[in-house]
Every structure is written in structure tokens, then in C-alpha cells.
Design a protein around this nucleic acid. Sequence first.
DNA 1: GCTGATTCGTCCATTACTCGACACACCATT
DNA 2: AATGGTGTGTCGAGTAATGGACGAATCAGC
Lengths: 181, 181
Amino acid sequence: MAKIDRRILKSQLAIKQALMQLMSEKSFDDITIQDISDKADVHRATIYLHYQDKFDLLDKLIEEHIQAMREISDWACEIDWRTATQAYFEYFEQNYLFFSTMLSSKGAPSFRSLFLQFIMEEFNEEVDPSEERNHELTKEVMLPFMGTAYVGVVEWWIINGMPCPPPEMAKQVGILLERIV
Amino acid sequence: MAKIDRRILKSQLAIKQALMQLMSEKSFDDITIQDISDKADVHRATIYLHYQDKFDLLDKLIEEHIQAMREISDWACEIDWRTATQAYFEYFEQNYLFFSTMLSSKGAPSFRSLFLQFIMEEFNEEVDPSEERNHELTKEVMLPFMGTAYVGVVEWWIINGMPCPPPEMAKQVGILLERIV
DNA sequence: GCTGATTCGTCCATTACTCGACACACCATT
DNA sequence: AATGGTGTGTCGAGTAATGGACGAATCAGC
């Protein structure tokens, strides 16, 4: 992978952080490009150097986090569920500002469905309906069942300010998932 | 005052913060230009764009703080001592990392004397040996007496982790100064 | 309707920064 | 005396970001 000029990394980081901060203050629709460039301490034209418009910026921001989670699952593919779940919740914790913004009532409506889609893709390789105890079940039903459950509990955990630490969440969610699958 | 390109401000800020952080970790002599540029996330050549060498960087950093304190005293010249002293201690508090680094045992030996010199200049305009109760005193003696007392108590306060809030320090130091002058 | 104020997206000349290289000095090891 | 390693200060070519401008689009209040 070619090394990227540090100016690009710094500018993009500042822009993305600025958007996230602004989204925690007001609605995405009310945010102007000028707002973002002011908060990021970057010239307005610099934003257009990297993104089409603010929607493209939001898309890239979301895609980046999905990609990061994908890498966690790659890394944890051979690990047991509990450890993997803990890695996820630690990632949610590290990026609390992002997730709380995206999952809040006035957040990005598109994010939740992308998140759910991603989670279901992850479960897809773990679920085996040919197992004995699942002979009456199909993936079509199991995946949205597990996926919405998972997304729902993450949503609860984030919106309520992470009332318990990642290991505790990993333990409980791990138990529940193993009962289902 | 001509508006300065934001890239310059950002680079210089990063470089100065990097030096301060490094000085809290190891001795100034052991810090290389490469260390600073790494920590600041800036190319090595960028440092030479703004400073002669690391000594010049330290000088400019110190001078900047002295200048900031000079502006406080300009602003507070008409205010009573206690308010002015509180403004100073709030500045020390805001820039705790800088002062604790500079005043620590392995800090910049030059800073303490520059600091003392500055403080004595400030006192110089406030002390009046022609007053009745001072008729046996001279400025030559009063200034280093008050100056070292002031610097000494600041040193104590910083090195001991600011054990009391700025208003409390302002009160006590204010009382003591008024007894002397 | 019109108008003034914003915001947008784009453009260009200039500037600051980057990257990698260079010769040089210093120091410890051999 | 020769060696390898590390830090220094400088250089040039290339790139990213800047400031300021522009016309077009959108919107509010009159």
C-alpha cells in the first residue's frame, strides 16, 4: 500500500471529527460546509478536494467504520464468540461519539440499516441451519432475528451511556447468542 | 496585524506541543529533532522552516509565554493586586504542562531566571521607595526580595501539583505582597 | 413579484508542507 | 586509522492546502 501524504490524513481526520462533533450538536441537515470547515480549521475548498459534498462525507465516514468492524471480525474469526463480542464492544466504546450520534433519534437514518446489514452478513457465516436442533429453522428467519437483537442491544447500550463495561456486555450477549444459534 | 496562514499556526502549535510533551518525558538534551517531528506529525524540514534549531524553538516557546504574561499585566494594570495575581495563577494553571516542565529539576535552567527577570520588571512599576514607610529601603533590595518570593511560591505551587485553587493563592499572595510594598 | 443574504460548487495563483536525498559532524567500536 | 551508526542542517521537485474570487442556486422577508 502506497504511503499516503500526512497532510491528507490530517485534513481528512479533522474534517471527519468536525462533522461528528457538529452532528452531536445539531441535525445533519442544518450543518453547512462552512460549519465543517470552520470547526475543522480547514479551508472550505479542502473539503471538496476529498469529498463530493457533505452526504459523500457522511457515507465515507460510515463506510470507514463498517470497514473497521469488518477487520475486527477478520481478526477474530477464529476466536470464540465472547472474545469477538468484547472486541466489538470495545470498538463501540472507543468510538462512542460516532455511534451515539449515528444511533440517536436525529442521527443518520441510513446508518442503522447499514449496521444491521453488516451484522447479518457476519452472522451469516456462523449460523448453520443444517444442525440437528435447527432443523425446523431457516436462515431467512434466524438472521433478522439475531441481527435486530444484536443491533437493538447495542443501541440500548450506547443511548444509555454504556451502563456496563464491554466485558460484561460480551458475557451476557455471548450467552444469549449461543442459546439461539 | 496581517492574517497568518492557518497552516503555519497549526504546524507551529504541533511542534511546540510536541516539545513540551517530550520535555515532560526526558531531558531537553536527549531530545532530537526527529523526536519532535515524529511527535508533532510533521516532516523534519518543517521544523527548520520555522526555527533555527531546537534551542531556538525553546527560546521562542519561552518568549511566547513571557509575552502572554506581559499582556495579562497590561490588561490588569488598573486592577487591584489580588485580581491581577489571580489572573496570573489562572494562566499558570491553564499552562500547567509548560510551567511544571520548565520549573522541574531537569527543566530549562534559563527559564527560571527569565521568569524572575520578568516578574521584577512587573514589580518595578508598582514599588515606590519614596513612600513614607519605605524611606529606609531601596528598589535594589526590594525587587529581588519580592521577585524571588513570588517566583518561589509559584514554583512550590506548580511542583506540588497546584494544591489549592488560583483564587486561594491570589488571596494569600496578595496579602503578603501588600505587607511588603 | 423583487431583493438581500447565504450557501454552494468551482476555479486559480500562491504558499506551506512533504518526501527523499545529500554532505557533514560526532561518537563509539574495532 | 578505519568503521558503522546516528543526528544535523539543507536542498529541490512535487503535492496539498490556502485565500479569495466567481456565478448559480436557494431561501427569507418585504
